[in-house]
Design a protein around this nucleic acid. Structure first.
Lengths: 211, 211
DNA sequence: TCATGGACATACTACCGCGTATGTTGGCAG
DNA sequence: CTGCCAACATACGCGGTAGTATGTCCATGA
């Protein structure tokens, strides 16, 4: 390999960004454990050196992918959840937005879901534990946005459920489901994507809608 | 270790069974990759020798855990799905039964869910590929039970949805959700468990119920 | 009572993948 | 022109783990 191949990937993808995107793809395809740092580097036509220049460990990289995913989610959903409109209208908009983001940033979202189930047994360093706590807090905050709107809607007589926490979990379960099976290029006309958004939004709303 | 410690765990847990149960626990706690064969053996107060005496590879063991889980699921749900009663009554019973089984056999169910997301990239041997195909077929069959009842209910005007496949996925997404956060000993009075069954059954039914 | 095989334990190998220590280069600042 | 540093590449060391080869014990039947 010629040392001088210093091609800053023309587009704005600065060092860290390119690595996070590559890592998101790898983690999505193979999962955390099955993805090696060499895999991530290979996807960049680079070597471990490049990755470890920006990240101190594999776990740190994994955390950063999740952080980016949650940043996107919160940035798009918070304005809607805290914005104007009656609870039903807001929840509808939240569902549509959530589904749209999920399918757009599929790789990041799948990594986020992996992180939820994993707890990453043994986050050794204190820094890692702190980062993990932050991620959990952001997830909790995201779910809290749904809970808030749901409770408001229940007081308005629009929704019906006993336990707000259960309700938010059920709604998110429905909304996250397409992440498990949706694939780009799978008849990816905007039409089919729109059909998924429409139908799963309806499912999610029906879950909690009052009779 | 004294060689003579041949204590056949009094109860009927024959060789294979004890291993599958231990493996289910380990895989549930730590996931597939993070679980070593030594971990499984340690949980049995035994060594790798015992595991490899019954299973030819780690993947085979993982498959067997999934197989047992799916066996339980199909055995309990098929009679209900194909039994008598109108579609709404049957779907209700299916939801309650599914939730009940999930919480009862939590460890197996979490392993099954892992298997769904994993595809176990690179099932090397043909035998493993065949076993994997069988598992996928059983999962498909299980989901098919829901689809069947859903379509029947739609024809009867009880349910409303566009795509039967989407509908079954949404229902199962709701029903499987408790597996992600439910823990034994977490205020495990039959009462709280019953509350979960009641509420998530309602969520699942509402998803697809006609207005 | 002796041989045989099932049910494990022990000891070992081979490999992979993380992290690190050390090069190598180009692009700045002065 | 020179020194310095960021941005990588290269080359290991080292631990952990899957799988194997072999040893040991017990039960059973002939």
């Amino acid at each position: 390999m010629v040392y001088g191949a210093r091609n800053r990937t023309s587009a704005g993808e600065t060092g860290r960004d390119a690595i996070v995107f590559a890592a998101a793809d790898c983690f999505m395809q193979a999962g955390y454990d099955a993805t090696s740092i060499d895999d991530v580097a290979a996807r960049l036509n680079a070597t471990k050196g490049r990755v470890y220049h920006y990240y101190r460990s594999k776990a740190d990289l994994f955390f950063d992918v999740q952080r980016r995913g949650m940043e996107i989610n919160l940035a798009t959903l918070e304005p809607i959840a805290l914005g104007p409109g009656d609870p039903l209208a807001r929840l509808t908009a939240m569902c549509r937005s959530h589904l749209s983001v999920m399918m757009e940033y599929l790789n990041f979202q799948r990594v986020v879901m992996q992180g939820v189930e994993m707890h990453l047994a043994g986050a050794t360093t204190p820094a890692q534990r702190r980062e993990l706590a932050r991620l959990m807090a952001e997830r909790e905050r995201y779910e809290g946005l749904f809970r808030k709107v749901l409770v408001e809607g229940r007081q308005a007589g629009l929704f019906a459920f006993a336990n707000p926490s259960f309700a938010s979990k059920a709604v998110l379960a429905v909304l996250n489901n397409p992440v498990l099976w949706f694939r780009r290029r799978d008849g990816d006309d905007a039409a089919s994507r729109q059909a998924i958004i429409d139908e799963f939004t309806a499912f999610a709303l029906n879950c909690v809608r009052a009779a």
